[in-house]
Design a protein around this nucleic acid. Structure first.
Length: 477
RNA sequence: UCCUUCUUAGCUCAGCUGGUUAGAGCACAUGACUGUUAAUCAUGGGGUCCCUGGUUCGAGCCCAGGAGAGGGAGCCA
């Protein structure tokens, strides 16, 4: 007889059929009731043990964390709290778990503690829900782009281009780093390195994505990205996953439409497909909110917040409009911002972004047309000579979740800008070739996958939505 | 990297103005009970008070340095 998954058992009508189920013990109450979980769902299956007919040494080994196999009959539950349960006819201990040493207890643990035992935190309700939702979102993204006819491109993880300037990079080498070969000037001689030149882990697949978009029209990448920044925040990782679509024959407007449609699609998909898990996370947050003073509680529950995003269009405004709103707002006039908004052209600080999203509009905001000085070289220059066709999508509680732009497709404009910023054109000849041969308007963006998972799960620390977070001074597991 | 808070039992935390043997809940062990929902009740074991140095008759508590963690900022996704 085949083992059944708990998710399916809980949906089955009980007719006293005999089944086999395997999983890990969450709690064992009253010497009679096992809460069994196999990770297929957040809900546990209750196993009823007749302790009078079960050997003492088996009962003693049914401990929190133990892996067990149950053969029994599926019946309607006599107790409250579950509709079906399994009356065990035989119990096999597959893997013991010493209750005194097993760190997880049937009680609430702090997220900080669970982060230190990330190898075991999958077995908790919260992280079970988080990583099932993460899986659902990942699948939804692929499905969304597949339905739209986008080609999934595997952009390289090791690159030799360091011309992009998108942050500090991790160096890739097979040199003996205590004794690398040197040239006649005493400099490290990369000619003898594995690739014959310096190489790094990618900080973005965008440039490669553009090359493919100018052949396949619509592509997206979904892969790991690495930044060696010394960032210690709740929304940065040294290794994270990014989704980067790129569309040929498209402008900034198409770009905004795609990003908004995609975010709404995957949120909607998660709400429907991962309903139980999101409901659990929703309850978890409500409990947490009860601990807070009234004025710090959020207006919306997690599910209300997600639905709100589906029912309302994102607010679309230009940098200049945002600048005016911020300059004229009471916060600015009363000097409540740490950084005053006074001169057009300043970069917005996160306190300003939060004001716009959380206080002024109270919904996701798409900011476009930023001053060119504060944005990258590849963004398309607007006719005003001051701004570029950039877009950032800001989410409540998360901040920037998407950063993108229409790309500069005009060779001369692009080269001029690269010269101004001192970006070596010869190293990026391949990028410029797309502008030499059959260039066309195109646009794309980068979506931080973990930031999306943060938003949908209502978690607040990005280290809790990736299985094994890599951050400065932390590369455990 | 900067600012700030924290570090006491396996976990979550209390510990007064520096004072004698450092506590609670949960977990664990033993027993009772047996349709429980983080079961309940009784009993019990469990401590490098983060580390190093200093002040003091006396330091978990004060001072200096260090390590680690949380929150905020910058960089960004």
């Amino acid at each position: 007889m085949a083992r059944l998954r708990i998710k399916d058992i809980l949906k089955t009508t009980p007719t006293e059929q005999t089944i086999i189920v395997k999983g890990w013990v969450r709690t064992f109450r009253n010497n009679s009731f096992i809460a069994l979980n196999d990770g297929s769902t957040n809900n546990n299956l209750q196993i009823v043990v007749d302790f009078n007919k079960t050997p003492e040494d088996i009962l003693k080994r049914i401990t929190t964390g133990a892996a067990i196999s149950i053969t029994g009959i599926l019946v309607a539950s006599l107790g409250k709290g579950q509709s079906v349960e399994v009356k065990a006819s035989s119990i096999e201990i597959i893997g013991d778990s010493d209750a005194e040493k097993y760190p997880l207890q049937p009680k609430k643990h702090s997220l900080e503690f669970l982060r230190e035992i990330a190898h075991l935190r999958f077995r908790t309700n919260t992280f079970g829900a988080v990583f099932r939702v993460r899986n659902t979102l990942s699948f939804a993204i692929h499905q969304f782009f597949n339905e739209k006819g986008f080609l999934n491109l595997h952009s390289p993880i090791i690159t030799s281009s360091d011309a992009e300037g998108a942050g500090e990079m991790f160096h890739v080498t097979n040199f003996d780093i205590s004794n690398p070969p040197k040239d006649e000037n005493g400099q490290i001689d990369y000619k003898h390195d594995f690739f014959g030149k310096p190489a790094n882990l990618t900080v973005s697949g965008q440039l490669e994505g553009e090359l493919a978009a100018l052949a396949f029209s619509d592509i997206y990448t979904f892969g790991p990205t690495f930044r060696a920044e010394n960032s210690n925040t709740t929304r940065h990782l040294a290794e994270f996953w990014m989704i980067e679509p790129e569309m040929a024959f498209s402008d900034l407007n198409d770009n905004m439409n795609l990003a908004e449609e995609m975010l709404q699609y995957v949120i909607n998909y998660a709400l429907k497909t991962s309903h139980d898990d999101i409901e659990f996370l929703n309850q978890r947050l409500l409990e947490e909110e009860k601990q807070k003073p009234q004025n710090e509680r959020s207006e919306f529950s997690l599910i209300e917040k997600l639905n709100f995003c589906l029912e309302n269009n994102f607010e679309r405004i230009t940098y200049s409009q945002a600048f005016d709103i911020l300059r004229e707002c009471n916060y600015n006039k009363k000097k409540k911002f740490n950084y005053l908004i006074d001169k057009w052209g300043v970069d917005l600080q996160s306190e300003h972004e939060r004001y716009l999203v959380e206080k002024h509009f109270k919904k996701p905001v798409i900011l476009i047309d930023y001053p060119k000085e504060i944005k990258s070289f590849y963004m398309r220059q607007n006719d005003d000579g001051k701004t570029v066709a950039a877009m950032d999508i800001l989410f409540p509680g998360i901040g920037e979740i998407v950063g993108g732009s229409q790309r500069e497709e005009r060779l001369e404009k692009l080269e001029t800008r690269m010269d101004e910023l001192g970006i070596p054109k010869d190293e990026l000849y391949w990028y410029l070739d797309t502008r030499r041969f059959g260039s066309c308007p195109h646009a794309g963006f980068g979506l931080g996958f973990e930031r999306l998972v943060l938003f949908v799960t209502g978690m607040t620390n990005i280290r809790d939505v990736i299985p094994f977070p890599r951050t400065p001074k932390n590369c455990e597991f």
